[in-house]
Design a protein around this nucleic acid. Structure first.
Lengths: 333, 333
DNA sequence: TTGTATGCGTTATCAC
DNA sequence: GTGATAACGCATACAA
């Protein structure tokens, strides 16, 4: 069963070698390995044995060439400047995608998608090396610019469309849980410091907050910010200047929440005594802040893995998949 | 000069199309585009014009197939468990690499390299889809297992070898600056909470600390930990139990430093009054902690970009490149 | 079920 | 300086 030719270290083992070792043709070996097409049990066993014996690894380049599909997954992040990519959330997402891709022998590349030039999505369809695309912070304009050629191999985190499925955390549920939690704690003048208005995913939080406050006859107090601690500091000042009696703040993420806490304490306010603050993401340092931060989990890894799998396999169950976020009650609210 | 066949949106423009448009052979078109081989000025102009007119993008898969090289950069992180990959530093590094790779049309994949099985590096050489490799937290055993086939397209962050160039932050310089800073502030009983002993990069910090303390006739107080806040908490308790009069602690990173601060404050110690604490990395939350954290910068993006470029271009100036870290003095030390 | 033959898009080796 | 032509490794339509 073993060929007489020894393995020289320079020689790469190819499908031809496997077929010869198994005593079958290349076609049969290929069918067994890909799992597509008919194959007898005996042939299958022999091919599999040969694969293991020779340590065969399919050449992804050749597969991509004949298959006509690319070999890298592109993560495109919409934003106003290239520094949009310089974000811990993006980092975490990309790393998760990179892990999921690794087992399939493909890689990830990360690029900025200018807010001002949504049509750049089309270039991704032209580039044959791009096997699939994952959109982050996509706007309506970006979604409209998605060419039909990308259908089935593109997904979005945040906002989706009829042709682009969306995978994200259940922001509405998370926001509702926070509002209820604060209400239970006796808070009635609850403000929200949300992300920038142009980010579509922000709307889901804001709308939930708005409808809940309205239903309860409570005041609607919204301040727009970015997703940084500095943004949180500024927003806190704005909010307390505008509505001094605010007794709770829901922040867009933990960084913002920590910025808000810093600003509030700087003004002599007691957290959570005077103002309760809660964040979103449950970053590692949420448990290290003073006070420790009440927040809600963000299953970034699950989202990244699901979106990657969907876009690579080219099939998904639903046009919209939202993963639950869990409220983590600590000291700040 | 323009062909009569219109561009159907489904048809991908290939080198054949460019050659036809330019009125030359595929070979000539290829020579012009790659820049390798002879070509007349006229042929060059016509090919370049055709490329622009048709919006031609070379098929990377075909290039990789004929060239024999891969199309993805593999980042392999050594550690005891797969959760080694679940680290903000790794995330940040991978994202930076993914950005640098994007402009070259290739992708990144991230995988765990088991501490117990260093020989798994060899598999990367077998896999033709891997164009280059970047090692994180590589041990001596891993470095020894690196096959010759990887020479010229592998680099390491942390520890290098004669065949594997290293790119990293100047940990020795950063540590020295911290020790001097603490000394200037009057601290004399300075402890260090380092990363685990098996991580070679940790040695550079420890050695610098050791020699400096020895030179100054000061006590050497080392506690091993991991790079998490919980690890920092435990290490702080150990250190203060062993050497109650410790008046300063140098932590392995900011997470550890914040854990140390939390533990110390829990024991009623005043920071920096009783004990000065400094970290490393200068994470965004170093400025948000109470007290704000004295730390040192970590140019992860520069390191990642340099290593990626070196390993992709296959050439580098020096076998070891260390980037400076800058001390950031805040309240904690 | 299996083997034969062809094509994927590019680079490189030759003659010319 | 240029143009045929042979690889590169694999998947698949087709014939057996």
């Amino acid at each position: 069963m073993t060929t007489s030719t020894p393995h020289t270290s320079t020689h790469r083992v190819t499908l031809e070698d496997v077929a010869r070792e198994a005593g079958v043709s290349r076609a049969t070996a290929s069918r067994v390995i890909t799992g597509c097409g008919p194959s007898s049990a005996e042939a299958r066993d022999r091919v599999i044995a040969a694969v293991k014996a020779l340590g065969y690894i399919p050449d992804a380049a050749a597969r991509a060439l004949v298959g006509g599909h690319g070999f890298r997954l592109v993560v495109a992040v919409t934003g106003h400047t290239p520094s949009t990519l310089d974000d811990p959330y993006v980092d975490r997402f990309v790393a998760s995608v990179a892990v999921t891709c690794a087992t399939r022998g493909i890689g990830v590349s990360l690029q900025w998608l200018p807010y001002r030039d949504p049509d750049q999505v089309r270039r991704l369809a032209k580039d044959r090396s791009a096997r699939a695309v994952l959109l982050l912070n996509a706007t309506d304009a970006v979604l409209r610019a998605v060419p039909a050629a990308l259908t089935g191999r593109i997904a979005s985190i945040g906002l989706g469309s009829t042709t682009v499925p969306v995978f994200d955390v259940d922001l509405a549920g998370a926001t509702a849980a926070m509002v209820y939690h604060l209400y239970d704690k006796g808070r009635r003048r609850i403000a929200m410091v949300s992300g920038p208005a142009w980010m579509p995913c922000v709307a889901r939080s804001v709308e939930t907050y708005r409808s809940l406050m309205q239903a309860g006859g409570l005041p609607f107090r919204l301040v727009r910010s970015n997703f940084t601690a500095d943004g949180g500091k500024a927003a806190a000042r704005t909010a307390l200047c505008r509505w001094p009696d605010t007794d709770a703040v829901i922040a867009g993420n933990d960084a913002v929440a920590l910025g808000i806490i810093a600003a509030l304490r700087g003004q002599g306010r007691n957290i959570p005594g005077d103002v309760a603050v809660c964040g979103f993401d449950d970053i590692p340092f949420a448990v290290l802040s003073t006070p420790t931060l009440t927040t809600s989990t963000h299953p970034v890894e699950r989202i990244a893995t699901a979106a990657t799998t969907a876009v690579l396999d080219g099939s998904w169950a639903s046009p919209a998949t939202y993963y639950p976020s869990q409220l983590i009650c600590r000291e700040s609210a």
